[in-house]
Amino acid sequence: MPPKPRLSRETVVNILLALMLLAFPLGASAMGETFYITLATRIVVLALAAVGLNIALGLGGLVSFGHAAFFGLGGYVAGILSTHAFNAEPLLFGIEGTTSMPVIWLVAVMICGIIALPIGAISLRTTGVYFIMITLAFAQMIYFFAVSWPAYGGEDGLSIYVRNEFPGVNTAQPLSFFLICYVLLMLALGLFWLLRGARFGAALEAGRQNATRLAAVGIAPFNIRLVAFVVSAMMTGIAGALFADLNKFVSPSMLSWHMSGELIVLIILGGKARLFGPVAGAMLYVLIEYALGGITEHWQFFLGLILLCVVLFARGGLLGLLAGKARHG
């Protein structure tokens, strides 16, 4: 893309969205409304998970219906490590648990990467509906394992009694925890932007548009896609760890196929393959959820209706509406 002298409309919208997302909890904090800070944190964490999925789904066209697996794994890493630290019981092989967030994130990234590698390698042999279904199957496998394995709460889930710590920050304070999540989201968006602009991103998008041509110029689509899938899983894993810390609770519902569906919904609501698509989607989704939940107990019905209308009539999502058509096909 040629350099543009002026900011494009999408960039302006993106900056506005980022500022709004930051201003909302700051304002809420000034008025002492902790609930709204938690709501904003929820938006940020869900957006982070969806930015991760957007690498595979948006750029690579890999419709993973199993990203809840990585979201939940990240959550369980946070839950299990902090439980062991809390009870002062060593994990396997004498390794101690920890309550340090950076360590938890690192472990979550590693675990998600290690598990995403074989899942991706097997799933990417298939395409289309089969890919959707096999990623779903792998997520269900992990879901049922979590449900039936009683050591970490099984179906009842696992509580995190004290929110994990970040050096130099009091994470128990809602606003500080929000800021940690917000910085991570911005870093993730930066990474997404770098990846999309790099040769890797170009190859990934080319593979989505025409895999045969990509192969003809000497780049194996499989390898590119596998890397994208693994990176995407890692990012979603960090979001999972934050989500567990936000709720101070992790349960198999984080691994369920509903969660996978929700992550896809966030991307589509906001705008597929757009940098800020997941952010706009998460903002809209959580606000709809919150606003409808206040009006009717049957809010899920109307959420479904809104979603249906977006899919049928508003292709391109919220960003398509605000910032016009995407420049990337």
């Binding site: 419709v63 219906f65 959707i132 569906g261 896809i264 919904v265 589509i268 959420l303 479904g304 209706l305 979603l307 249906l308 899919v311 049928l312 292709r315």
Partner: peptide, 8 residues
């Protein structure tokens, strides 16, 4: 789109 609409 089909997954999403039928999810809704």
């Amino acid at each position: 789109d089909q997954v999403l609409a039928t999810f809704a």
